[in-house]
Computed example of a mutant assay.
Amino acid sequence: MTDHDPIELEDELPEGPSKTRRKKDSDALQRLGAELVALSADRLKKVPLPENLRDAVRACQRFKMEARRRQLQYIGKLMRNIDPEPIQAMLDVFNGVSAEEIARQHRLERQRERLLEDESVLFELAERHPGADLQRLRVLRRNALKERETQKPPRAYREIFRILREIDESPTND
C-alpha cells in the first residue's frame, strides 16, 4: 500500500459538473427542444436558432414515435453548443410568462376597456395603425356592449382583444 499525498489526490479528481448534473442539463435541453418542436411554423421563424438546429426541429415535427424520440435527443445534443437563454426568452414570450408579455397583455386589456367606454379610441388606433379595420372593431364594440347587457358569453369582447393583439404585433406605418 502506498501513501498518497492529499495534494496529489486532489489533482486526480475529475473537474467539471457531475454526471448527474450533466444528465439534468441534457434533459433540460431536450425539453426545450421539445417545446421548439411543438411550435407552429410562424412562431418557429421568430426564435433565434442556428440553421442546423432549425432544420432538425422541422424534421422532428414530421417524425413519429421512435424516430421522433431519437430526433429530440439529437436536438438536445445540438443545443449543447449554443446559449439556450435567447430561445427560452422567446418561448416565455410565446407562453405569456415573460414580464414584457404580461405587461403587453395588461396594456391591451386596458385599451379594450377604454374602447368599450369610449368609441373615440378608434381614432387613436387609426392614427397609430392606419391599416387597422376600424369598421370591424366598431361592430365588435357594439356587439360586446350588447353581450354585457344581455349577459351572453363574451365572444365579441374576446375578438376585440385578438384584433388589438394583431394590430399591436403588426409593424407601424410611421
Rank of each mutant, 00 (worst) to 15 (best):
G33W: 00
D25S: 04
M90I: 15
R21L: 15
K46F: 04
Q151N: 15
R162P: 12
N95V: 12
M90A: 05
A156W: 01
K77D: 10
A89K: 03
D5Q: 08
A41L: 15
P6E: 05
L145S: 03
Q61C: 08
E149W: 03
K19T: 13
E117L: 10
R142A: 14
L44M: 08
H4R: 14
S98N: 06
E119D: 12
A99I: 13
L39C: 08
I163G: 03
K152V: 07
K45Q: 13
V37F: 05
I102M: 10
I167K: 00
E85R: 02
R70G: 11
A56Q: 04
L36E: 05
R54I: 15
V97L: 09
V37A: 04
P86L: 05
R128E: 13
K19C: 09
R141Y: 00
I75Y: 00
D174R: 09
R158M: 08
L32K: 01
P130Q: 06
H4A: 09
P130H: 07
P6H: 06
R158H: 04
R128Q: 14
R104M: 11
R162M: 08
R114E: 12
A144M: 01
S26H: 10
M65E: 15
L53P: 09
P14G: 04
R165Q: 07
V121L: 08
L145G: 03
E147R: 00
E66A: 06
R62K: 13
A59S: 08
L116V: 06
E51A: 12
Q88T: 11
A99F: 07
K24Y: 10
D83S: 05
L78F: 07
R107Y: 09
D55Q: 14
D25P: 12
L115H: 00
Q61E: 02
D83M: 04
L164G: 02
I87C: 01
P171H: 01
V93S: 09
R43D: 12
R110Y: 07
L78S: 05
A56W: 02
P14R: 11
A41N: 10
P14K: 15
E149P: 12
L49T: 04
P154Y: 03
K152Y: 01
E169T: 12
